[in-house]
Amino acid sequence: MASIRLENIVKRYGAFTGVQNMSLDIADEEFLVLLGPSGCGKTTTMRMIAGLEMPTEGNIIIGGEVVNDIDARDRDVAMVFQGYALYPNMTVYENIRFPLRMRRVPASDQDRMVRTAADMVELGAFLDRKPGALSGGQRQRAALARAVVRQPQVFLMDEPLSNLDAKLRQSMRVQIKHMQRQLRITTVYVTHDQIEAMTLADRIVIMNKGAIQQVGTPDQIYTDPANTFVAGFIGGPPMNLIEGTATGGRFTAPGVNAPCPANLSGRITLGIRPEDCTVGGGQVQGLVYGVEPTGDVTYLSVLAGTKQVEVKAARDFRSDIDVPITIGFDPARLYFFGADGQRIRGGA
């Protein structure tokens, strides 16, 4: 139960900067999700909070106390490691019990706590196995159980569900969220899965190349992206980003002609989410490139000039490829970004 504050954190490995000038306030009891492409510094950030890595510059403050010089074992955080890090010589039971033993939890409570944690991750039947005799998903769940078996100040979870099947992932997700709300423990969670990020997070931090791109609630990140990186990263499929020219209140690109604010001019990027596009309408003239029915909705790709525009179409939409088609944009849902990729606010 603690707030976390990162002040101008820099982490360099030799000449390479893993995390650059990161400042972030994580509220007490908050569920914060770190989201970003592979290698953007998520694990590094977590490891610095855990005390396993020293920041090159900056301060880490947990519960109002600067913890830069406090050893990992005294920070009272529990971490799920991306690579699981199960102790190979111990059974699942002993693995889960290890943090309890180290923290001198009374022996009479240990057994009950281990079994509760194991049941939560549905590993109750595997307590006597060594990690080597578990499947990847079972190992991952054992690692999760080892972290949640006690109640630390902070949970750090580095892609704790990445190796599970869709069904188990969904149920674990609900469990984690429920547990976090119940125990009210500040949690930092890394994932590559946008659904996970959207459903779990109080706030999402989008990172790229070691730098924070945007911090906000899932809604803010989705409806109000700060730049083309965030816009192109969130959503499935993500926002269409079309480079073109603005003159006199019109945005034009090969095959695209849409309204834009009259004050914009020069090279800009237009953004429109697939779900804000409709079949028919005059903004895009192109050819059908592909149709992907998913049952729920049908994804349609339209080739406009050399650019593919993704459209979320009605579930019963079907078409041959190379058929001429027009696409309309919801004019209230257009985003514009400058040549530097930053959002141009003021709307359409």
């Binding site: 396993l52 990992a72 074992r73 971490m79 102790y87 111990m90």
Partner: peptide
């Protein structure tokens, strides 16, 4: 893997514990 020791450390183990309970069994 270094992550093993990292895990033990966040779980609250000191150097000697880590050597005795994690490292020695793992490199037996």
């Amino acid at each position: 893997p270094k992550e093993l020791e990292d895990a033990a450390r966040t779980d609250g183990a000191g150097d000697l514990r880590i050597l005795w309970e994690i490292i020695i069994p793992a490199c037996l």
